[in-house]
Simulated assay, not measured.
Amino acid sequence: MGFHKVKTIDEAESVKLNVSSKQQSNARDVPPALPSIVTRIDETIVSASNQHRYGQLYTDNLRARKAVFIDQKSWELPHTDGMEFDQYDTPQSRSVVIHEYGRVLAGVRLLPTTARCGCYSYMLRDAQLGLLPNIPEHVLYERAPVMPHVWEATRLFLTKDEPAERRLFIQTKLIKAMARAATEQGATHVIGIVPAVFQRWMNRLGLNALPMGPKLNIGGDHTQAAVMHVAGQAA
């Protein structure tokens, strides 16, 4: 038996310990594998100025909105060619779209409270001014803000038939993307009409918001106006 084939027990144990130590070190250096859902689901901020980069994503988002708000909720809203839209879908708005392999899963529209389009500004303010008959004028406790650092979120939706284990992930991704899109435009706060159980919902997402108006039934949904502080919450 040659020299190179002979190892003492101590040497063998030392080799095992070194190998084990290296394996543990390598295991610590390799980040844990992300669930496949994380790598499949993406977010995109679409506007009139960049929609040409994303193929049919903008129109698919409007079709998803129709499926939710008109087909499912039976809201009376403008639509054509299977797409839902209104007076707030202007070049001043941004649409946050969560999608998977091109299929729209969720979305929300952002509009600055300084926006103007003819006689319209933004939804909460126009409702308060009596321009939107389907939303009560007392939707807010105080006068609607018109400030460059405050944006409004509307048309927030999640498509149906998503299982529970995906819904929370998609909702969280949507709200985080909304916060990021708003802060990129200089916003510190986002206001909007949300489900009346929004505080419990926001807590589940690890975020917070405060009520801005009374609880109302709008279009069959129990809702409430709220404000979310988005600065520092987009990570």
Rank of each mutant, 00 (worst) to 15 (best):
V38A: 09
V68L: 02
I41F: 00
A64T: 09
T39F: 03
N50H: 04
A67C: 05
E43H: 03
R53H: 12
I70L: 06
Q56S: 15
I41P: 03
I70Y: 03
S47M: 05
D42I: 07
G55M: 05
A48V: 05
R63T: 13
R65S: 08
N61W: 06
K66W: 02
T44K: 08
H52V: 11
D42L: 15
A33R: 14
I37W: 08
R40C: 01
E43Y: 02
A64E: 07
T39L: 11
F69E: 07
D42W: 13
A33E: 14
A64R: 13
E43T: 13
S49Y: 09
H52R: 13
L62G: 05
I70E: 09
D42C: 13
R40V: 01
F69Q: 08
P35K: 03
F69P: 07
L57P: 06
T39Q: 11
P35I: 00
I70F: 04
A67M: 10
Q56M: 11
I70M: 12
P32M: 05
F69K: 09
D60H: 12
T44I: 08
T44M: 12
A48Y: 15
Q51F: 08
Q51W: 06
A67S: 13
T59R: 14
I70W: 02
G55V: 03
Y58M: 14
A33V: 11
S49K: 12
R65Q: 07
D42Y: 12
V68Q: 03
I37E: 05
E43P: 01
F69L: 10
R53S: 10
S36F: 06
